[in-house]
């Protein structure tokens, strides 16, 4: 079980969290300005890297806040967590 370091609550077990997929996939400013293909990209296509992956988690059984984490998809090690709205480079430590 992963221990995930909630930016608000600190380290808590994985079972308290929900997973939200890739981070930094913003809802398009004006969906109607997009082609079908561009809209489909937003709906269905996500990165699948072998290595560091910035993704969203929500502390469902804690502060109920969404935040971002950088997780290595090979080792499941989380190298950084940062609040929604912050960018990855500002806070990411190590890795």
């Amino acid at each position: 079980m992963l221990i995930i370091d909630c930016p608000n609550c600190g380290p808590r077990p994985e079972t308290e969290y929900g997973y939200g997929g890739q981070a930094h996939v913003a809802y398009p400013e004006d969906p109607h300005a997009l082609t079908d293909e561009e809209w489909a990209q937003y709906l269905f296509y996500r990165d699948n890297p072998k290595g560091d992956y910035a993704e969203r988690w929500v502390h469902s059984a804690g502060c109920r806040k969404w935040f971002n984490a950088v997780r290595d998809t090979r080792t499941y090690e989380i190298s950084a967590v940062y609040r929604t709205g912050e960018t990855r480079s500002e806070t990411q430590k190590g890795a």
Partner: peptide
């Protein structure tokens, strides 16, 4: 509830 919170926190804070 999670859906509402997700949109209010992540897209429309």
């Amino acid at each position: 509830l999670e859906w509402l919170e997700e949109w209010s926190q992540t897209e429309w804070p």
